Simulated scan of single mutants.
Amino acid sequence: METYGGRRGQTERDAITVEIGYALFSAAFAAAVLFGAVAGPAVLFELPYTMELLLLRTAMVLAPVLFLARVVSVLVRFRPGRPQPSQPGRTNPDS
């Protein structure tokens, strides 16, 4: 954004779109892995009914919480228009 309150350019809109897609994809992947790790034993093994219920309900609570936390953390870190950090390992020619 060149001026305060100005319109965003196509590059910034594309960057925001990519960042939202990354946030959603990585959050869905993390939530699925967590759900599988917590609820997996209940599905794979013969456990007492109470334990199966506890594992499934715990997974059903934790997965959406992780999903939302991941999306928020990725999008809060992203600041459009901010200069990107220099490449690591490269030295400044003036040094």
Rank of each mutant, 00 (worst) to 15 (best):
M1D: 07
M1F: 08
E2A: 15
E2Q: 13
Y4H: 10
G5V: 07
G5T: 06
G5F: 03
G5M: 02
G5S: 07
G6S: 12
G6P: 04
R7N: 13
R7E: 15
R7G: 12
R8I: 04
G9A: 13
Q10Y: 13
Q10K: 14
Q10R: 13
Q10A: 15
Q10D: 15
Q10S: 14
T11I: 09
E12D: 12
E12C: 04
I16Q: 06
V18I: 14
E19T: 08
E19N: 12
I20Q: 02
I20Y: 07
G21M: 06
Y22H: 10
Y22L: 06
A23Q: 00
L24T: 04
L24C: 09
F25H: 06
A28T: 09
A28F: 06
F29Q: 05
F29D: 08
A30R: 01
A31H: 00
A31G: 07
A32V: 05
V33E: 08
V33R: 07
V33T: 11
L34E: 00
G36M: 09
G36E: 06
G36V: 08
A37S: 13
A37N: 13
A37W: 09
A37E: 06
V38E: 00
A39H: 01
A39M: 02
G40R: 00
G40W: 01
G40E: 03
P41V: 04
P41H: 09
P41F: 05
A42Y: 01
A42S: 11
V43M: 06
L44N: 08
E46M: 07
E46Q: 09
E46I: 02
E46A: 10
L47D: 00
P48F: 03
P48I: 01
T50R: 11
M51S: 15
M51P: 00
E52H: 05
L53E: 10
L53R: 13
L53T: 15
L54M: 15
L55I: 01
L56K: 05
R57P: 01
R57W: 11
R57C: 12
R57V: 08
T58Y: 00
A59M: 07
A59H: 01
A59T: 03
M60R: 10
V61E: 06
V61F: 11
L62E: 03
A63W: 00
V65W: 11
V65I: 15
V65P: 06
L66A: 08
L66N: 01
L68R: 12
L68H: 12
A69H: 06
A69Y: 09
V71R: 01
V72Q: 12
S73T: 10
L75D: 03
L75I: 07
V76A: 09
R77Y: 07
R77W: 05
F78H: 10
F78A: 01
R79E: 14
P80Y: 02
P80W: 02
G81E: 05
R82G: 02
R82H: 14
Q84P: 04
Q84E: 14
Q84A: 13
P85M: 10
P85H: 07
S86I: 10
S86V: 11
P88Y: 14
G89C: 09
G89P: 00
G89A: 13
N92R: 11
P93S: 05
D94R: 12
D94G: 08
S95K: 13
